[in-house]
């Protein structure tokens, strides 16, 4: 059993074909999973494909969801990560001459050029991290999952998660030192 899941009631209405519930679930989850896929893949177009594919699985599964067995958000993160790893694996199989396109930081005039540049540098430094360290930082820092949920999704202990996070952040600090 898991703690009460804030998405369960919405999911039940989605399964009944309630259009308002569908829009609510999309508004709640699409930005979240697009961020996850975008940061995992460093490629907006591939991230959009993953988001669409993940939602197809959500629509298919909505009517079969068993309340209390797992948290929907955790399940969804796992689906998206698996789809991302499938793509990363395929990408590795094809020799890549150029580095993948980085997620568009969407220049914000108030933040100025420096902020956009630093954002791009962060993207490059994240892409250079070992996959598991990158995944740990994305889940805990950007997706704001609890350490228990992140460790569960990654299939590691909380201690191992903390080690991945600390090593990843240390590497990022070294890579970004000139920009901080």
């Amino acid at each position: 059993m898991v703690e009460s899941d804030p998405d369960e009631a919405l999911l039940a209405r989605v399964a009944e074909g309630d259009p308002a519930a569908v829009r609510s679930l999309v508004a709640r989850k699409l930005p979240r999973i697009l961020s996850l896929a975008g940061r995992m893949l460093g490629d907006t177009s591939a991230a959009e494909d993953v988001a669409q594919e993940a939602f197809l699985r959500v629509w298919k599964m909505a009517g079969q969801w068993i309340p209390g067995r797992a948290r929907f958000d955790t399940w969804l993160h796992r689906v998206v990560l698996n789809l991302c790893y499938d793509r990363l694996r395929r990408r590795r199989e094809i020799t890549i001459a150029d580095p993948p396109e980085q997620a568009d930081e969407g220049a914000d005039p108030d933040r100025g050029l420096h902020a956009a540049d630093t954002g791009r540098l962060v993207g490059v430094a994240m892409a250079a991290l070992p996959e598991r360290q990158r995944e740990a930082i994305i889940l805990c820092h950007y997706q704001e999952l609890s350490n228990i949920d992140a460790a569960d999704i990654m299939g590691v202990s909380v201690d191992a998660l903390e080690s991945l996070l600390a090593r990843g952040r240390r590497a990022l600090r070294a890579a970004l030192a000139p920009a901080m």
């Binding site: 999309v26 930005p31 669409q52 930081e105 954002g119 962060v122």
Partner: peptide
């Protein structure tokens, strides 16, 4: 510094495609 790495924005075409498949 990490917070300056912005995620992709959700395009309305993507949102509508996702909703249409529900």
């Amino acid at each position: 510094a990490l917070d300056l790495w912005r995620p992709p924005e959700v395009r309305s075409a993507l949102r509508e495609a996702v909703v249409a498949a529900a």
